[in-house]
Simulated assay, not measured.
Amino acid sequence: MVAFDLILPGLDSSGPRRVLQKALGGEARMQVVATDRRRECVTLHVEVPSRSLSDVIGVVTSRFEQATLGHATTFTLRR
């Protein structure tokens, strides 16, 4: 599992969430964790199973030129 925060310009997260869902697959989970009206940006927390960190970073950077990728981490879920 790869987890990261993504800061995007604008206050509407619906478009970026659709782009991420399509690019990262249906198992990707996203939630808005902050909305900054003063700076006009939104922060998403994203979790993606079954992808490598470099693959996820490549997808994000190729689709969002003005995004800021926060701390990214990988971990394994045990069941």
Rank of each mutant, 00 (worst) to 15 (best):
R78E: 12
V56W: 04
P9W: 04
A28M: 09
L53F: 11
Q66M: 09
H71F: 11
V2T: 06
P16V: 01
T73S: 15
Q21A: 14
T43L: 10
L69T: 00
V60C: 05
T68S: 15
F4Q: 07
L8T: 08
D55G: 09
V56Y: 03
S14V: 15
P49H: 05
V19G: 06
R29F: 02
G15Q: 13
R51W: 07
R38Q: 15
D5C: 11
T68F: 02
V19R: 07
F64L: 08
R39G: 08
E65H: 12
V19M: 03
Q66T: 03
G10A: 06
R78L: 12
Q21L: 08
E27R: 13
A3I: 14
R18E: 13
D36E: 10
A23M: 07
S62I: 01
K22Y: 06
V32I: 10
I7H: 12
L77P: 11
R63V: 00
V59R: 07
E65C: 00
P9L: 07
L20V: 04
V60P: 04
T35V: 15
R79F: 13
M1I: 02
R51T: 03
L44K: 02
G58S: 03
G58Q: 01
G70Y: 08
Q31I: 06
A34G: 11
G10N: 04
V48R: 04
D5K: 13
S13L: 02
R37Q: 07
L44N: 03
L69A: 08
T74G: 12
R51P: 00
E40K: 14
T76G: 10
V2H: 02
V56Q: 04
A34H: 13
V46F: 03
V42C: 09
L77K: 14
R63P: 00
H71C: 01
L44R: 01
L6I: 09
G15K: 13
L20S: 08
S13C: 08
T35K: 15
P9G: 06
T73F: 05
R51Q: 06
S50N: 14
T43S: 11
T74S: 14
G25C: 02
E65S: 15
F64H: 09
G70W: 07
R78K: 11
G15N: 04
L24I: 06
L6Q: 09
L24F: 14
R63F: 00
K22W: 03
T61N: 10
V2R: 10
T68E: 15
V42K: 05
E40V: 00
Q31D: 11
V2D: 01
L69M: 09
P49L: 14
T35Q: 15
M30F: 07
L20K: 08
R38T: 14
Q21Y: 04
R18D: 13
R37E: 12
V32M: 11
